[in-house]
Simulated assay, not measured.
Amino acid sequence: MNKDIQKIAADFLLALKMQQQPDNHLAKISALPRHILFQELDSEQQKKTFWINCYNAFFLHLRRNKRVDKPAIYREKLCRIAGQTFSLDEIEHGILRRYRAKLAFGYLPNLFVPKIIRQLAVKRIDARIHFALNCGAISCPPIAFYSVEKLDQQLDWASESFLKNETNILPEKQEIHFSRLGYWYLGDFGGRKGIRQMVQHYLGVDTNSYRIVFKDYNWDEDLNNFAEA
């Protein structure tokens, strides 16, 4: 059954990539027994894989097919999964970020989340998810299809690719120009020290003494930003 629940989410996302009507996929994901979410998503890899694919699929569906605009697309409970309705914010900040408060830079928990969100949430925040979730803007990372077996490798690839494309290192100024994602979710990244370590890990540049400058985010819409296979 584990492969089935993951396949349902991936097939839903694939239908949107191919610009096919997703009604059949929506029905399948909605009809999943609720206990399957607890029974089959019993590891960090399984949780992250399923919810990343679901987030990206539902965002595309709601924006492209239903024309839901911001901020309603994030806040309203419009994602029906296993008979339960979730908002995109609940999937991202509740489940994948372990119920962090949305506007607290990753440092404070949200104390008012539903019980089911607490039960489904990951045990540990993985900052790499920020290079996997796509909200339809040009500055967002591209959409990929994540699998349980290759998740760590895929998240590493997504992180390295995003940092190579979006990070500017200026040795003459001793500055790192980093995505605005690092500012919004600073706690997830382990603060500025964590960002420097991430840059060194993925880009191989020692930036220990560099000042971090957060870049502006380009919110122009791009609903077809899929990673190359």
Rank of each mutant, 00 (worst) to 15 (best):
D152G: 08
I125R: 02
L88N: 03
Q119C: 04
G83E: 15
Q45G: 00
R97T: 03
C79E: 07
P33V: 08
R34A: 14
L37Q: 04
P33L: 09
Q39H: 05
I52M: 10
P141D: 13
I95G: 02
Q46A: 11
D69S: 11
N134Y: 10
H25A: 12
E40D: 11
N53T: 12
S87D: 08
Q19S: 03
L88H: 02
A144Q: 03
N53C: 13
D42E: 02
S43P: 00
F145Y: 02
Q39A: 12
D152R: 05
I73Y: 04
A127S: 15
Y74C: 01
E90P: 03
R34Q: 14
P142S: 11
N53V: 14
E149F: 09
C79P: 02
R64E: 15
F38S: 02
H93D: 08
G83P: 07
E44Y: 02
Q154V: 04
C140I: 10
I129P: 05
P109M: 11
L88W: 03
I73Q: 02
N110R: 05
N53E: 15
E149G: 05
Y99A: 15
I73M: 06
Y55P: 00
A72T: 14
K115N: 13
I36W: 13
N134D: 08
Q153V: 14
F145S: 03
I36Y: 13
V113K: 11
